[in-house]
Amino acid sequence: MEKKELKAGEVSYEKLIINPSWCKGCGICVAFCPKKILSIENEKVKVDDIEKCIQCGMCELRCPDYAIYVGGKKNEKRG
């Protein structure tokens, strides 16, 4: 899947979107990702293997800083 840099430094993988400027690197998303595809690098979250993402939303649910979220239909439904 293609990695795209959006405005304001956001990184979009279509399935998963990360806003590094809000990330404080606490590691909660990394610990609770069932597929273990996230890691922390330089105190910011990063995706290691987006192909394995199942869009379960565990990262989004427990991110205290709203810096990571599931894209696509799941996001469109909300709000």
Binding site: L6, E10, I17, N19, S21, W22, K24, G25, C26, G27, I28, E60, L61, R62, C63, P64, D65, Y66, A67, Y69, V70, N75, E76, K77, R78, G79
Partner: peptide
């Protein structure tokens, strides 16, 4: 662009919050 839920209900210009890394308050607020 933050997620739709955050975009709709938060003052996104004020984010990120002042809370420490890993503070549970952000999760509860969501």
């Amino acid at each position: 662009m933050p997620s739709n839920l955050v975009e709709k209900y938060f003052r996104t210009e004020k984010l990120p919050q002042i809370w420490c890394p890993g503070c549970g308050h952000g999760v509860i607020t969501r």
